[in-house]
């Protein structure tokens, strides 16, 4: 892979910025005063021990949770809160920690569903799959086939995803997220539960997406080897607080991070 230098990232244009975000559920403070930024074209990892607030953070970014305090700036626009629909329209798409696909639908249809926001012909035409709706569908089908080719899932194009092994389901989910042609892709533990070979494949796809299409990626992952290899910059959370932020090497050497992961005598 081409090596991005620190300078590249530093001068990179800012894509998203979260400022002093706090989120609590009743008395539980999930996120406290967290700020960080994501620049265009980077792979940004969010790591931390269990319950550190990583998934909550992703949910705040794509508007699934609404923080009590703080602002989110995406593409230069400052907001109090995101809404999922708005986030999707503006180019944020995501995958989930637990696979969230339509189990009875084929791989093709699942990925096609990822393009629904891009379909504009009215319900009437779509119902009869005729005229402008048909042309539109052909166009989208082509885009979906390119994703299928890219992810090498041709043999399962017509298989209901419920029948697929877990590793492939994860790949289909990535495909559906890609179908929206996102400018920011949020991946929640894309490699959880995979064996070594599947992890290597998935890492390759993530790098390819990032480099070939220039998609900015924010990912949560527990496999430190993978994170250190993939990420350009890393944010570390612990008990809802940000404890470190920087290049992989810096984070690795950070005493707070080591303490958070290994535990420390109080």
């Amino acid at each position: 892979m081409s090596l991005k230098t620190v300078a590249d990232i530093a001068t990179g244009e800012e894509l998203l910025h979260v400022d002093d975000i706090s989120l609590s559920f009743g008395g539980v403070k999930a996120i406290q005063d967290i700020s960080f930024d994501i620049t265009k074209g980077e792979i940004r990892a969010i790591i931390g021990p269990n319950g550190a607030g990583k998934t909550s953070m992703l949910n705040v970014i794509n508007g699934f949770y609404h923080p009590q305090v703080g602002t989110i700036t995406f593409l230069g626009e400052e907001r109090r809160k995101m809404r999922p629909y708005m986030a999707a329209c503006q180019g944020i798409s995501r995958t989930f920690q637990n696979v969230a696909l339509f189990a009875g639908m084929s791989t093709l249809d699942n990925i096609m569903a990822g393009r629904s926001l891009k379909m504009h012909k009215n319900f009437f035409w779509q119902m009869f799959r005729y005229g402008p709706a048909l042309n539109e569908e052909i166009e989208h089908r082509r885009a979906v086939e390119e994703i299928i080719d890219f992810l090498e899932i041709e043999p399962i194009r017509k298989t209901p995803v419920g029948q697929l092994p877990y590793g492939l389901q994860k790949r289909v989910e990535l495909g559906r997220a890609l179908a929206a042609e996102p400018s920011l892709l949020l991946l929640d533990e894309p490699m959880a539960g995979m064996n070594l070979e599947e992890k290597e494949d998935m890492s390759r796809f993530i790098i390819d997406v990032n480099q070939q299409f220039g998609t900015t990626i924010a990912l949560i992952e527990h496999d430190m080897g993978v994170v250190m290899d993939l990420a350009d910059r890393i944010v570390v959370l612990d008990y809802g607080k940000k404890i470190a932020d920087g290049l992989p090497a810096q984070v690795q050497a950070d005493q707070n991070v080591i303490d958070a992961y290994l535990g420390v005598a109080h």
Binding site: A143, E146, I147, D149, F150, L178, E181, F213, T215
Partner: peptide
């Protein structure tokens, strides 16, 4: 965003 890889 996704471009055809086998152009032509």
């Amino acid at each position: 965003m996704l471009r055809c890889q086998t152009a032509g």
